[in-house]
Write a protein that binds this DNA or RNA. Structure first.
Lengths: 342, 342
DNA sequence: CTGAAAGCGCTTACAG
DNA sequence: CTGAAAGCGCTTACAG
């Protein structure tokens, strides 16, 4: 498969290679006749410009990197969909990496994306361990935006929900329903978002005069199977919790699965609150009570801000982008009054 | 942010630019001392090779394109996860496009990916309308693999489930449970996979002596909302079906949502069968009966075969890759005996 | 073993 | 308006 070049087009159209290039770039001062002749040849040959060569000259690729924790989690999938579609409209393409929440994959992903000369990166779920690496990128003027996470770096760009408040709202809701034993199933505490949610949970309980029971807090990697079996064990205990706040809707579904496998009725026997508000949460067959992350807004904003950073990189020190979104409690079928004590 | 080049490294290390390049490429005949000096400078400077320039010379990008119908559908998300992770291991990166099942986006995605000079493309849900376009690519020797779909093109590469048989198995299962009014909610018939499922449904009913009732067949674009409202209307009818076969698990969830919104009990009032076997289908809280596509196998094979095609392009006319997978019925909680006639 | 040089396919200042 | 030429940052035959 011999690829065609602007040189080929030029030869056949009887003009110079630079003229072909100008036509391709909509350069205004070209004789109508010349332009049309070139266009005709391009059309006839089915010529497609080599964007790789173009990127080399223009020092930009019109590609961005999107690093996700796990795309099979609907939170990430829905995020990716919004970002990819909007990027496509803005003529950027998106190279997607899936880290499986492993730090070493994150490191590799960043290095490869830098090598591929992407114009910017959106990074989800960065752990604290990577503060230095991200700081270096950011200080070099490379456009990076942290999504649903943030790090303690001056002027770093991020968009994140107020996770502490989100957890507090969830606890309030359950307390209001009469629950007194509320478990918290969290992701790894190396993620600031996770850490803040656990803090919010503890603070809200303490503020309401409840003691913190460490047996009710499970901090695990994001693994469906681990959450599932932990929940099963937890629910078999005599003094089991009557409500569970999960780290995400995905994890809430694992909790619901575990409870169902024990023939527990939801919400009669157990109330469950998720985090994210994935689309499935509002499906009436499921009806998951959850803390909304306003994902559509968060992901669309993330993409647009990143593109802004890319396209205004050279201008007066662009103010850094730091956005906090308000959590919103979505009450549905998986939460109800605490079962009577017996 | 001034980027470093091999030229910079060479100057500082006191060697020629070509030597730096050779070190980068693990060229064997380099004096140990030279190699170490260069490596030290690379390390110290934090130099990263420009893969764009390299791609231009080597005429390959180590990127592949993945064109998906809708990544927020778990079928595509789970597919993407497997493909992206395996590609990453094989040192390829993946540019993901989301067509939203719109033909014009498919066309645009292919053109952009060709421009970006990806080494190959995995294409899901191609409609018949694109037979010519794909044929041209394929005939040009460009590696394309159709995933979960196929087209009538000689020697085209594809991996697909036996959709006709899958639909038949679903019908058999419901017939065996005593259902006589079985509805079929399908995607657009421009997709061969969808078309074959509808055919299989009709054939199995006919073979068992049932008439085809066109009012029970809904062929729509893949829109959650459309399926949802159609189902609601359908279930309100006096002579409503007692079972529904949905085009995908995602659509089955829309059907279940609609039924739940009408306070129907599953499976007592209505049996539902999906297609795909997404991970959520086996969650006990949901327990969706479905036809398994063996997605993990299908997606892993797809990626590996595409890479094979890419890396053996120049060799003796590589046999084309045409894989049919067997469907498998997964019986869970959403199907049960037909309600008594009254 | 190593350097100088050509070349990948474009863009764009420079000249006319 | 248009062409000839330099240059983007690499790889790799060619020479030594």
């Amino acid at each position: 498969m011999k690829r065609l070049t602007t040189e080929d087009v030029a030869r056949i159209a009887g003009v110079s290679q630079s003229t072909v290039s100008r036509v391709l770039n909509d350069y205004p001062y070209i004789k109508k006749h010349t332009r049309e002749k070139v266009l005709a040849v391009i059309e006839e040959l089915g010529f497609t410009r080599d964007e790789i060569a173009r990127s080399l000259v223009e020092k930009r690729t019109k590609s961005i990197g999107l690093i996700l924790g796990s795309i099979s989690n609907p939170f990430f999938a829905e995020t990716a969909e919004v970002i990819i579609e909007r990027a496509q409209q803005l003529k950027y393409d998106v190279i997607v990496y899936n880290t499986g929440h492993k730090d070493e994959n994150l490191e590799q992903a960043i290095n490869l994306l830098i090598g591929k000369r992407v114009d910017g990166i959106i990074l989800t779920s960065v752990s604290k361990n990577y503060t230095e690496k991200i700081k270096k990128l950011h200080d070099n003027g490379f456009p990076v935006l942290l999504y649903n996470s943030f790090l303690d770096i001056e002027d770093v760009n991020f968009i994140v929900m107020d996770n502490n408040k989100g957890a507090r709202v969830a606890v309030q809701h359950l307390l209001g329903l009469g629950h007194e034993k509320i478990a918290k199933i969290s992701g790894p505490s190396k993620y600031l978002a996770t850490y803040e949610r656990t803090m919010g949970y503890k603070q809200e309980l303490t503020d309401n005069g409840y003691a913190i029971d460490d047996d009710l807090i499970f901090s695990s990697e994001f693994s469906y199977d681990k959450i599932y079996s932990f929940t099963k064990k937890l629910l078999k205990k005599k003094d089991r919790p009557t409500a569970i706040i999960a780290a995400s809707d995905q994890m809430a579904l694992a909790v619901l699965g575990a409870a169902s496998s024990l023939d527990m009725k939801i919400p009669d026997d157990l109330s469950v609150v998720g985090f994210d508000n994935i689309r499935l949460a509002s499906n009436e067959f499921i009806g998951l009570t959850t803390i909304s992350q306003k994902m559509d807004e968060m992901s669309l904003t993330a993409l647009e801000k990143l593109i802004y950073l890319i396209e205004h990189k050279e201008e007066e020190a662009a103010a850094s982008i730091q956005i906090f979104l308000e959590p919103e409690l979505m009450i549905r079928r998986t939460t109800g009054p605490a079962p009577k004590q017996d």
